[in-house]
Every structure is written in structure tokens, then in C-alpha cells.
Design a protein around this nucleic acid. Structure first.
Lengths: 208, 208
DNA sequence: AACTGAAACTAACAAGCGTTAGTTAAACTC
DNA sequence: GAGTTTAACTAACGCTTGTTAGTTTCAGTT
């Protein structure tokens, strides 16, 4: 066993400010990496790029993380799990299908506005996950299924038009997934107002 | 002058089947590269990957192309110019704004269905263009401006709802740009039917 | 004052990268 | 058949990649 602790050393660890700082340093690496990944993509960013952006040497990164892969996994999986978790509470609520769809719009705007860089990795670099790739694909498939089920229920209940639900999921989800590109461009954006406008356009269209 | 020809040698070139075959071999490299670029992204694909997919050695590729960069430029710029050209004829036509938007949907579905792999590079790897990056950005900006002008005209003419045109452009264009992900999934797709359904959803929404 | 551990460092590794030089074999032109 | 061209090849180049080993610095604990 490499990392076994006595009871006393655990207590020391908890009260040790250094250890807390360690964790925040790891977060710094992940945040910095996400910024670079958005600009050039995972494969084009080197460990030396990440280190330089933090003002340290590449080798020093390995005091905090195990591999370049791990950085990507943490970025993507934590976001995918946020979507999964919040979709769960949306689908279990007793609202109408249209209200559920509006809540999905809110969900995407919220997570994206707080994670504009990470969302780029989620959208563009998921294929470079290795061990975690099957898990990610499972989460994504479940999410899309939940989305389609809400739409199919809306069609059954005559809330929504009788059209191919796949096309409807595709159209809405494509827009929501692209939010990470657009949100940062509108810096002084009223998030609440934007969410309302976007819901209106996605659900009622643009035709007068 | 490295490549000057006498009149007779030009005539020979035109009637020379080898030279035509040369061009098609270059096209093969570009097509093969596009397939790999879609799967892993430009940066993660090596010249040895491309060569292996064609059953030759990496060095042999350089008999047909000048650099890895050049492959990417040809893929992206040729598509961007197709969009630019066809947008030109749409905006100059005397149709209503809604009909122009429907034509833009047709434009995207057509180009994407014929270039599913290249469209991935256009969307994800444009930042790895080097010399051609400013030109690409100019074409993209012009395209988005033309798109927004059509929508603004539609609002003026009371064809479209009075809403933020940026949100409307964002919503429609995000969906159209994601077509390369979805079209290949529906293999036995009736393109014409799909285009009609998509136009309906984008313009009239999904609300009953 | 001695000890501990976090977090930086230097130096280096083996593997892989895009690309070039020079060669070869086969297919065309005359 | 001699000469030319196309398009493959082998071999290698200098550079960059992710990562490891071992060392140093320094603040906090005992």
C-alpha cells in the first residue's frame, strides 16, 4: 500500500492549509487547460503550453495531475454529469412538456455561461477520452433519449406539432450545444432575457 | 522560372492521361484526410495515418501535396467558397425573406450531404489554417452578415417576429452548422423530405 | 533546530512528428 | 527501343511530444 495514513495523519491533513491549496492548484491547471483547449483543441495543446500559461515548467504539472488525459477527463466528465443530474430532476418534475423544454434551455444556458471553456472540450474533444469514453457515450445517449422522450410525450399530448421527433431534438440540441461559441461574444448579456428570447425562438419559431 | 512550358508541352499536358490521374490522386489524399480529420481532428491525424489509410508511405504523399497544412486549406476554403457563392445568388434573388431562409436551409443540406467529412473540418479545424485564416474569417463574417441582413429585412417587412435578430441567426445557423453530425446517422434519409421538415421546425417552431 | 511535505526545478528519455533527399520501378511518349 | 515522367520507395533529418527521475527550496510542524 502506497498511500496509507494513520488516524492522526488524516486529522493533520484535514487541518493542513497546504493540502487545501494543493487542490486549488489542480483546479487552476484544469481551468487554464480548458482555456487553451478551447482555442486550439486538446491535441494541439502541449503540456509545455499549459505550464507556460501558468508560469511554471511542464514537469511541475505532474505534482498535481497524473496525465494530460486526466485533465481532459475531469473537464468533460464533470460537465456531462452535471447535465445528467439536472436532466433527471427535469424529467421527473410534473410540468408540461413545453415547460420541461424551457427548463432544458435554462439548464444549457446556465452550465454554459459558467463553463464556456469546458463546454468547448465537451463538444469537440470527447473522442480523445480513452478509458472514460464508453462512460461518456452512455451519459450522452441517455441524455438524448430523455430529451426525445419529453418531445414524444409533448406530441402525444398535442402540445407539440406532429413531426419527426428526431428532427426536433436535432434542431434544439444543436443550438443548445453551440451556446459556448455565442455566449462569450455577447459580453454584457442579460442572461435571463437571452434565455427567454432563445426559448421563444426555439419553441415558436421566427414566423410571424 | 521553374515551371514554364512551351505551347507544345501544354498541349501534351492536356492530352496526357497521367496528368489527369495525378490530380485525382491528390483528390484521393484530400478525401481520405477529411475522413480522418472528422474522426480525430486535424492535429491528432499524422501524415503516417493518412498514408496508411491509402496503403502507401508518408513520404509518397509529398509527390502530390506540399504540406499537411495545404490539405486542410483545400478542404476548408473550397467549402467556404461554395457557401459564399451560393449565398450570393440567394441574397440577390427577389424572393421573400422566408423563402430566402428556406433556400439557405437547402444550401446547407446540399453541401453537407455531399461533404460530410469536409464539413467537420470547416467547423472544428478552421483555427489551424495559417496563411488562409484571415481569408476564411472574412468569408465567414460576410456570410453571417448576409444571413442577418435577410432576417432584418424579414422583420422590417413584418414577415418575421420582432425579436433580436442575433438570436435568430444564432439559432438557425447553429443547427445548420451541426448538420454534418446528424445527416450521416440517418443513412436511408430522404433528403428532400428532411429539408422540408427542418425548414418547418426552424421557421415555425415546434409549438402546436 | 531538526523534520516533513508540497511544489517548484533541471535534465533527460524514448517515441513520434512533418518533411526532405535520393533512389527505383513501371508506365507513357516519341 | 531510348528517353522521360509519375509515383512509389528507403532512410534519415531536426524538432517536439508526454512523461519520469532526482534535486532543491521553503513554509509549517514538532
Amino acid at each position: 500500500m502506497c498511500y496509507s495514513f494513520s488516524v492522526s495523519s488524516v486529522i493533520i491533513s484535514i487541518t493542513n492549509l497546504q493540502l487545501l491549496k494543493y487542490d486549488s492548484r489542480k483546479d487552476e491547471i484544469i481551468q487554464t487547460s480548458a482555456i487553451l483547449f478551447k482555442k486550439k483543441g486538446f491535441s494541439a495543446v502541449t503540456m509545455r503550453d499549459i505550464a507556460k500559461a501558468m508560469g511554471i515548467k511542464a514537469a511541475s504539472l505532474y505534482n498535481h495531475i497524473n496525465s494530460k488525459q486526466e485533465i481532459l477527463s475531469i473537464i468533460i466528465i464533470s460537465l456531462a454529469e452535471q447535465f445528467t443530474e439536472q436532466m433527471k430532476s427535469i424529467k421527473m418534475s410534473d410540468k408540461s412538456s413545453i415547460d420541461k423544454l424551457k427548463q432544458i434551455v435554462v439548464l444549457h444556458v446556465n452550465i454554459t455561461s459558467k463553463n464556456q471553456f469546458g463546454m468547448a472540450s465537451l463538444n469537440n474533444d470527447w473522442m480523445h477520452l480513452e478509458a472514460q469514453l464508453p462512460y461518456y457515450l452512455k451519459l450522452r445517449k441517455n441524455y438524448e433519449n430523455d430529451f426525445r422522450n419529453i418531445i414524444e410525450k409533448g406530441i402525444e399530448d398535442s402540445e407539440l406539432i406532429t413531426q419527426n421527433p428526431d428532427v426536433m431534438v436535432f434542431s434544439m440540441l444543436s443550438t443548445l450545444r453551440s451556446l459556448y461559441i455565442w455566449l462569450p461574444k455577447k459580453e454584457d448579456l442579460d442572461i435571463e432575457k437571452f434565455t427567454t428570447e432563445l426559448s421563444l425562438v426555439l419553441i415558436n419559431g421566427i414566423n410571424k
